[in-house]
């Protein structure tokens, strides 16, 4: 009898476990689908070719004359590119140092602690910090000088694609470095040893054996970091600014003006959404949802790329 009851209890327990995991999975899927659905329903009417290729006009509030999202879309790309260019080498060298040089020493422990703390700092604080630092006259090269009537540089303007990109790099550094660290740690010791035994130096081995083997994970980590940059608003608002169009010498898209455009401000899809949302000055919900839809599509495409590259990396691995 007792035995039977036990079996019955166990069966119930397993059914409960199964059902609860199934329900929670279904809930996650539902919330995700719901968000996508709401964004799609509300945003699809805004999507049109002119919406994608025109610059936003000064009167975003007016649905007839609001223009499009070309500069915010391009701003998102530019900011992501700048942030990635800054974060990639630093993250990779941090990861390499942690895996192959720091061992269990003090340097490794302090870098580990520092990245953990950095990962926990809210992005708005990073943005504030960036603004405080990059307005120092020494950082004029990142943005533009603010001069008095006599032409003396008082301070740097602080807000620009370069400043915001640097802040973004600081924001994603801990996550990207961690992902790269894990990718490198997963590469087999026997290949590392094998390369050393053939007379290669440690550095040659890292370059020719370990990094290529971890390539899939390294790229995936970087792409996930890019997704975070695209989705962030706080840093954009503080370190890039709220002007919807590109500032600086015009037309900004001429190659001779590129550097200048990087040192000036603009917008991203997230700051456009903020601006056109009911809390922003633009207050145009349809435009906000339209831009959200575009942003979500870009991020989904990026994640798909990450998954694809991850699977290519895995299938080529086979290095047990």
């Amino acid at each position: 009898m007792k035995c039977l009851r036990k079996i019955k209890n166990r069966r119930i327990a397993s059914i409960v476990g199964y059902a609860s995991s199934w329900i929670s999975m279904a809930m996650v899927a539902c919330v995700c689908l719901l968000i996508l659905l709401v964004v799609f329903i509300n945003g699809k009417s805004a999507i049109s070719i002119p919406f994608l290729i025109e610059e936003p006009s000064a009167s975003v509030m007016d649905p007839e004359a609001m223009g499009g999202i070309s500069t915010p879309l391009i701003g998102t790309m530019i900011l992501t590119a700048v942030g990635t260019a800054a974060a990639f080498p630093i993250s990779l060298s941090t990861a390499v140092f942690m895996v192959y040089y720091a061992k269990k020493g003090l340097a490794g422990a302090s870098i580990g602690l520092a990245t953990d703390i950095l990962a926990g700092i809210p992005t708005i604080v990073i943005g504030l910090f960036a603004l405080a630092v990059f307005t120092d006259p020494a950082f004029t090269f990142l943005s533009t000088p603010v001069q008095n009537d006599g032409g003396v540089v008082l301070k740097a303007y602080g807000k620009s694609f370069l400043s915001a990109g640097a802040a973004m790099a600081a924001m994603i550094l801990p996550f990207v470095a961690k992902a790269m660290y894990e990718a490198l740690s997963r590469t087999p010791q026997s290949h590392f040893d094998g390369s050393l035994a053939l007379g290669a130096t440690k550095w040659q081995t890292i370059r020719k054996v370990s990094i290529p083997a971890a390539r899939g994970g390294i790229v995936t980590g970087m792409i996930l970091g890019m997704g975070r940059i695209m989705g962030d608003t706080a840093i954009v608002w503080l370190a890039l600014g709220g002007s919807l169009r590109m500032t600086g010498r015009q037309p900004w898209h001429r190659p001779e003006n590129w550097i200048d455009a990087l040192r000036n401000t603009g917008s991203t899809l997230t700051s456009y959404i903020y601006y056109t949302s009911p809390v922003g000055e633009g207050n145009n919900l349809e435009a906000a949802f339209g831009a959200s839809l575009v942003l979500i599509c870009v991020i989904i495409a990026l994640n798909a790329a990450a998954a694809l590259i991850g699977s290519i990396g895995d299938s080529k691995k086979g290095w047990q």
């Binding site: 087999p188 026997s190 290949h191 040893d193 094998g194 050393l196 035994a197 053939l198 007379g199 290669a200 130096t201 054996v209 290529p212 083997a213 080529k316 691995k317 086979g318 290095w319 047990q320």
Partner: peptide
């Protein structure tokens, strides 16, 4: 010197428990 050690290793072949060919 590291160079001496590398020369030593180059003169010695080492084979491990599992084949460790690169991909």
């Amino acid at each position: 010197k590291q160079k001496e050690i590398r020369l030593l290793r180059k003169g010695i072949g080492m084979i491990f428990q599992r084949p460790n060919l690169l991909p």
